[in-house]
Simulated assay, not measured.
Amino acid sequence: MRESAPRATSSGPGRVLIAVYAIFALSSTARATVQIATKFHEAPLAYLLSALAGVVYILATIGLAGHGPAYRRLAWAAVGFELAGVLVVGTLTVLDTADFPDDTVWSVYGRGYGFVPLLLPVIGLAWLRRTRARADGSPHSRPGGQG
């Protein structure tokens, strides 16, 4: 019996995940760019954090869409950083609103975006874990199913 081919992160439900990451990459980067260009002096920390979030979403999109171990490492790093960022920035914005006169993408755990910024990295990490077993070298991923 021949084993199935490794499941890429960009297959099946991974395509939807990549599309959502791409939308967030585009929207958060565009929003941060406009905010930095037009009213940076009002909330520099918030706008820089939104720009950072945009870069992280871009890197996660590239990592999830790519094929091969380097792309998987990029995806793991970007999505892991994203989760840490949402938790840290979310907590800081709840505890100290004075430092954040305007929202970031990750403010209050992504409340302004329907909490998708909090759920997205959890789903992304779960998808990476689910696709890891065959894609990262288990016996099932070797040619011919030989282990």
Rank of each mutant, 00 (worst) to 15 (best):
W106S: 02
A25F: 14
F81K: 04
T91G: 12
G12W: 15
L87S: 04
T131R: 03
A78M: 10
A43P: 00
P101T: 02
L120D: 02
V56G: 10
A60E: 09
S107P: 06
L119M: 09
D102G: 01
P13W: 13
A51R: 05
A37Y: 14
S27N: 13
E42C: 05
S138M: 08
S10V: 05
R72G: 00
A70M: 09
D136I: 01
R15I: 12
P121D: 10
W127E: 08
V116I: 11
Q146R: 15
V34W: 14
R7N: 13
G68M: 03
G80A: 08
R2Q: 02
L64K: 14
Y21E: 07
A19V: 09
G14D: 10
A98F: 07
A37D: 08
D102M: 14
T104H: 05
G137A: 01
A46C: 03
G114M: 03
V55L: 15
L64Y: 12
L17K: 01
P143R: 13
A133L: 04
H67N: 05
T61R: 06
S138N: 10
M1S: 05
D103L: 10
E42F: 01
L120G: 06
A78Q: 08
S27D: 15
T61I: 08
D96L: 03
T9L: 14
P143T: 14
Y71M: 05
I58G: 13
S11I: 00
L95G: 06
L17S: 05
R132P: 03
A60P: 14
G80K: 01
S50N: 14
A8F: 08
